[in-house]
Computed example of a mutant assay.
Amino acid sequence: MNRAPITQKGVELLKAELKRLKTVERPKIIDAVAEARAHGDLKENAEYHAAREQQSFTEGRIAELEGIISTAEVIDVSNLNVGDKVVFGATVVLEEDETGKEVTYQIVGDAEADIEAGKISISSPVARALIGKSVDDEIEVRAPGGDKVYFIEEIKYI
């Protein structure tokens, strides 16, 4: 079985979402289905069909989260002692060569990646280019908008 890496914080967030879905969302949906059933004919009852669709989506997400959590390899980033190399879980400050703009990314598992929050998947092109590199190294990333060159300014393990 292939165990997907995930940070300690990432697995805690997934467990919190799973708990919310099971304890808050699932009971709401059950109530909505029961209420819609009480309205009569189910064939033409849009509320019933919407509630069942939401139930299906929620149950699917619960199953997905349970699968991710059960097979995840949890890595505590704060316990990593790898010197000055970029590894899974590292937070990296990069400077774009062309613009001089700084961006900060944390390398995380696929299940917790969120570009808006600065978390990039270990399987992303940027993360793959960063792994094993050190401060002041230059990396080149092939992007849809063209190749980009970055310099590693700082590496943190938080």
Rank of each mutant, 00 (worst) to 15 (best):
M1C: 06
N2F: 13
A4S: 13
I6D: 08
V11C: 05
L13E: 12
L14P: 00
E17P: 03
E17R: 13
E17G: 05
R20T: 13
K22W: 03
V24W: 09
E25V: 14
R26L: 13
I30G: 07
D31V: 11
A32F: 07
A32I: 08
V33C: 06
A34L: 10
E35I: 13
A38F: 12
H39C: 08
K43C: 03
A46Q: 11
A51Q: 05
Q55S: 13
G60C: 12
R61S: 03
R61K: 12
E64S: 03
L65P: 00
S70N: 10
T71R: 08
T71C: 00
E73H: 09
E73T: 08
V74K: 08
D76F: 11
N79E: 14
L80R: 11
N81S: 14
N81H: 15
N81Y: 12
D84N: 15
D84V: 00
D84S: 09
F88S: 04
L94M: 04
L94P: 02
L94T: 00
L94Q: 03
D97H: 09
E98R: 15
E98H: 10
G100V: 07
K101W: 07
K101Q: 14
V103A: 04
V103Y: 01
T104C: 10
Y105V: 15
Y105H: 14
I107H: 02
I107Q: 01
V108W: 02
G109Q: 06
G109V: 07
G109E: 02
G118T: 05
K119H: 11
I120F: 04
S121W: 00
I122P: 00
V126I: 14
A127I: 06
A127R: 00
A129W: 02
L130N: 00
I131M: 12
K133C: 02
D137W: 00
I139G: 00
D147L: 10
K148H: 12
V149C: 08
Y150C: 05
Y150E: 05
E153Q: 13
I155D: 03
I155Y: 02
K156E: 09
Y157I: 14
Y157P: 06
I158K: 12
